[in-house]
């Protein structure tokens, strides 16, 4: 790296004598190829952040920015005094922690076991099939889940009846206590195969000689997994764990919206649905924005603290 600037130092000196304009002109294609998109990103990603000012106003559509009434932290006060907000936070955290644990452990287990398969074709077939649900929309998955869990003819109830675990079908979709588990299971079913890709790539990078040596030493398969495979993918595991902690609160609302129904509302309402219902549904734009800001701030704090903790304890970090 260091020798390169020395070699080209002569033409560089000539170049610096040229005006700024000629420099811009010489890179005009690069500028034309990137700046339209910089403007695009500014409009679609940065202007909405300016929209955060709405949270501190009593925003009325149609009025100009200077005409809006400023209310300080009024909207946040209202948010923290709202009883529903705590219910929504409980649901959000419960579902996101369940998803973090299950959605994080299952792909690792599946990837490790896939790696242990000796038959290449069988391994590839299992992989292809396990990716399948990832490509299907949540709309379709919700339809499938509701069908599988239905009381008349749903496969889950039939299976449980045939095994004599239950006497009459369970109304899974109508009982609020089931909702968190259903969402988590559906999520694992949809994404587990897809999430193995990255671990399989990391496992592929482990030196095969390590396994050979372990075999010679008479290590069992479980010992090989524990002492070679898992340490080999530890970095990948840590990085993905940090990222998913950062996304803890951003569990989205699609699944909850599609799988939920009025019967289970007390367990299905999550923070983004809450923002959607109040902010857009009821037209309380300022309040909805305040909820969004709360959401963003919490996830940033989570990301940075997870990053910090892991940096201190394991030396791995994403930033």
């Amino acid at each position: 790296m260091k020798t390169l600037p020395l070699e080209v130092s002569k033409p560089m000196v000539v170049k610096t004598k040229k005006s700024v304009w000629s420099k811009i002109l010489s890179q005009k294609y690069l500028i034309l190829m990137s700046f339209p998109f910089v403007i695009w990103v500014f409009v679609f990603s940065y202007i909405p952040i300016w929209g955060w000012t709405m949270a501190f106003q009593n925003f009325k559509p149609g009025l100009s920015f200077s005409q809006q009434e400023w209310v300080g932290l009024q909207n946040f006060k209202e948010l923290f005094l709202d009883h529903d907000f705590y219910l929504v936070m409980r649901n959000t955290l419960a579902m996101s922690i369940m998803e973090l644990v299950a959605g994080f452990l299952c792909p690792i287990v599946l990837a490790v076991l896939l790696h242990e398969l000796k038959n290449k074709y069988f391994k590839r077939t299992v992989q292809t099939i396990s990716y399948l649900p990832h490509f299907v929309s949540w709309v379709v998955v919700s339809g499938i889940v509701i069908q599988m869990l239905s009381t008349d003819g749903g496969v889950v109830n039939q299976l449980l009846m045939n095994l004599h675990v239950i006497n009459k079908p369970i109304e899974f979709m109508g009982k609020e206590n089931w909702f968190w588990s259903i969402v988590t299971t559906a999520d694992v079913w949809k994404e587990v195969g897809w999430n193995t890709i990255i671990y399989l790539a990391a496992i592929a990078g482990i030196d095969p000689q390590l396994y050979e040596a372990a075999k010679v030493d008479g290590a069992s398969r479980f010992r090989q997994i524990w002492h070679i495979t898992i340490p080999g993918i530890r970095t990948t595991i840590t990085i993905l764990l940090i990222l998913s902690i950062g996304n803890l609160i951003n569990i989205g609302f699609e699944k909850q919206m599609l799988l939920g129904n009025p019967l289970v509302q007390s367990h299905s309402n999550v923070i983004q649905l809450y923002a959607l219902n109040y902010g857009i549904g009821l037209g309380r734009y300022s309040f909805g924005t305040a909820v969004g800001i709360f959401n963003s701030v919490v996830s940033i704090i989570l990301l940075f603290s997870a990053n910090r903790i892991f940096k201190k304890t394991t030396g791995e970090s994403v930033m």
Partner: peptide, 23 residues
Amino acid sequence: VSTFLALTLFFSGGLVPGYMLVR
């Protein structure tokens, strides 16, 4: 350009400001 883009990975305006922008 690279920093300008990367920052958007950490922040998002959220549902309501995005909706207002589209409107």
